[in-house]
Amino acid sequence: MKLNVKNETSRLRAVVLGTAEGIGGVPSLSDAYDPKSAEHIKAGTYPKEDDMVREMEAVKNVLEKYDVKVYRPKVINDYNQIFTRDIGFVIDDKFVRANILPDREQEIEAISHVLEKIEKDKIIKLPEDAHVEGGDVMLYNDHIFVGTYYGEDYSSFITARTNMKAVDHLKQHFPDKVVKPFNLRKSNTEPRDNALHLDCCFQPVGKDKAILYKGGFLNEEEYEWLVDFFGKENVFEISRDEMYNMFSNVFSISEDVVISERNFTRLNTWLRENGITVEEVPYAEIAKQEGLLRCSTLPLIRD
């Protein structure tokens, strides 16, 4: 397999879509990786496996409608394998294995049948102390935007998933790219104030547009840098509640086609007004785990 991903919106040809099969029952509160999952565990509204499987099948159907080759992880019983974006990501023709939370290491083994198709010298494994997850890595041609957390109290946040050591290693591996870090707001207890990954508060769409949430950035000048980079007229600003509902976590099949949650009325209207076809799917149950469409997809090949 010849990998190729340079941005978030070029025509998608091959992707790994996560699976909700075998996810099992409601996890214990102590096993929650993020405050939104914890919120729903406490409230008794944590999503059911059947509902999540149905939602992911809707996405698979849309991808196949556009002739995208869809790979799925091997099912591990009583294990969450929905968010494949976390376990690795492609930059140009290289696959970067993420250093994710130790409890989730089996997830990468479940896509070994995909990794076997990739030349060994095209797979990068970062050192163990360089923490990174794919939701924090956003490609924009010659730029790599990386969500991270600069604070010395990094280790006290289970929601801090990418550190500056990973940023430094990405700079070494991709010297021709501009690697730009962003200091994200983290909270272990309030999902409305937690940018778990960069794609929870920012994502490019279309040819030159972006979805952006100001409150996700600890440093206002970094948020302003993004507004200037895309141009204010090209930015769709989302609210705190829209960030909580994962408005920025849509997924592009191409510059002209975006998969979005069917309840994102304001966003979907804006996308259509900007000439983008919106494929609406139900994904509100999966959103209860603080992840959405981008989180559950791992692109391998784009044109």
Rank of each mutant, 00 (worst) to 15 (best):
T148H: 06
P47H: 12
N141R: 08
D92L: 11
E107Q: 08
K60L: 11
V59D: 04
F83W: 12
L170Y: 04
F157M: 07
K125I: 10
I158N: 13
I87C: 05
V70S: 09
R161S: 05
E133V: 06
R72N: 14
F182S: 05
F145T: 01
E109Q: 14
A160F: 04
I124W: 07
K48I: 14
I91R: 04
N77P: 07
Y150S: 10
V62T: 10
T84G: 09
D92K: 13
V167W: 05
D153F: 11
A130V: 07
V179I: 12
V53K: 11
D51A: 15
G88C: 08
D176W: 08
V114G: 06
V132R: 01
I111C: 03
E57N: 14
Q106L: 15
E152G: 11
R104I: 10
V62E: 09
E128L: 10
H113Y: 06
V114M: 07
F174Y: 03
I111K: 01
K60N: 13
R97H: 13
L126E: 03
I87N: 03
K120L: 09
I76Y: 11
N80E: 15
H131V: 11
F95T: 08
V178M: 15
G134E: 02
G147V: 02
D129Q: 11
F95E: 05
N183G: 02
E105L: 14
V59S: 05
D142H: 10
T162N: 01
E105A: 12
D92A: 12
V137A: 00
F174D: 00
R54D: 13
V132G: 05
Y140R: 08
K117N: 12
I100A: 08
L63R: 03
K60W: 06
A166S: 07
P102D: 10
D176T: 14
S112W: 08
Y71K: 05
D50S: 15
Y149K: 06
N99H: 07
F174E: 02
K60S: 13
F157L: 10
V68E: 07
S112E: 15
Y154A: 00
Q106T: 13
I91E: 03
